[in-house]
Nucleic acid binder design. Structure first.
Length: 310
DNA sequence: AACTCAGACAACCGCCTCATT
DNA sequence: TAATGAGGCGGTTGTCTGAGT
């Protein structure tokens, strides 16, 4: 009956992943692709649960991930999407290529929540804090319902200067049945908002085509124009490395032609790993004579590539 | 220098849905 | 059809780091 268990949890390693484990997982996925996570730890020689491997890959090692802080535009999108979808981080993440649900969730909890509170907006209800009672807040928090009202959206738009986002309301309609009541109620409120007006053209187009957002990605990576922002030097990408020598850790990635490459528009942040053909030789050069100090002088684009590798 | 504290984020846990047997 | 596990998801915890004292 049923399937075999994903793993016997005896003797499995927990906690932060080491560079060595990352190497093993990456090599395995590169050679075998993503399939049957249950078998991955054994085949890759890892003492991890398959679930842990999947999480590590999807949240951290995937080559199409963008690292670093969310741009202002992405942040606005997250706020906008959260107002409509609530804490459905995976849905929100699906609109932000290269970002994971975990990353967005963390960013929401650590940055955006505070930002909104500072602005006098309840991060759960997206209502102005002054116009909502504690009881209401508590109730809504428990129910975790996305709230949207014209007034609130106006305030949000005014304060955050939110641009039109490419989300479409059909996504909300296509949600699970158990959410439909709440969502539909929410739609009644949001569909007439300025925010919704911004989506009108998209909505019409999508509805006419009969697409379901769960089936068709709304935004292809190459369609997104993320405003280039000054890269944050406080990016966690470097600090999170469990290795003491970043360049050494990059050695194993010498066969870059195996990684999926994506074209990069010069005006945009790249999606995917945009790596030059000679990047591996550049790495060799850096490794050979300890040119790590050069890392401090690389351009934004170059440093971004390095960050993607870490 | 040592300690405390808070912020940030990676990773885990438990639940849910759906596919498989 | 029921039982079971895989994969996905959201909430929570653990760990690391830097700032402040």
């Amino acid at each position: 009956m049923g399937r075999q268990p994903c793993c016997d949890k005896v003797g499995l390693k927990k906690g932060p992943w080491t560079a060595e484990e990352d190497k093993k997982l990456i090599n395995f996925i590169l050679n075998n692709g993503q399939c049957c996570w249950r078998a991955v730890p054994k085949l890759a020689g890892l003492l991890r649960c398959g679930k842990s491997c999947r999480l590590r890959w999807t949240n951290y090692l995937r080559p199409d991930l963008k690292r670093g802080l969310l741009s202002e535009y992405e942040e606005k999108m997250v706020i906008d999407l959260h107002a409509q979808l609530g804490n459905r981080w995976s849905k929100i993440a699906s609109h932000l290529p290269g970002r994971t649900d975990n990353e967005i969730k963390n960013h929401w909890n650590t940055h955006i929540k505070k930002k909104l509170k500072k602005m006098g907006i309840d991060p759960i209800t997206h209502k102005p804090l002054s116009t909502i009672t504690i009881d209401q807040t508590h109730t809504l928090e428990q129910e975790n319902q996305p709230i949207g009202e014209e007034k609130n959206q106006d305030i949000l738009l005014a304060q955050m200067d939110i641009e039109s986002s490419p989300i479409d309301q059909s996504e909300i309609k296509s949600e699970d049945d158990d959410n439909n009541n709440n969502i539909n109620n929410n739609n009644n409120n949001t569909m007439g908002t300025n925010c919704a007006n911004n989506f009108d053209s998209t909505i019409m187009e999508v509805n006419n085509n009969g697409f379901c957002i769960d089936e068709v990605p709304l935004i292809e990576p190459h369609e997104i124009l993320v405003q280039e922002s000054t890269p944050s030097t406080s990016s966690s990408s470097f600090t999170s490395s469990s290795s003491s020598n970043i360049l050494e850790d990059l050695k194993f990635l010498s066969s870059f032609d195996e990684w999926p490459l994506m074209e990069n528009n010069n005006n945009n942040m790249g999606f995917g790993w945009e790596i030059n053909n000679d990047f591996s030789s550049t790495l060799d050069f850096l490794l050979e004579d300890d040119h790590s100090d050069m890392m401090n002088n690389v351009t934004f684009d170059e440093s971004w590539k390095f960050e993607q590798l870490l």
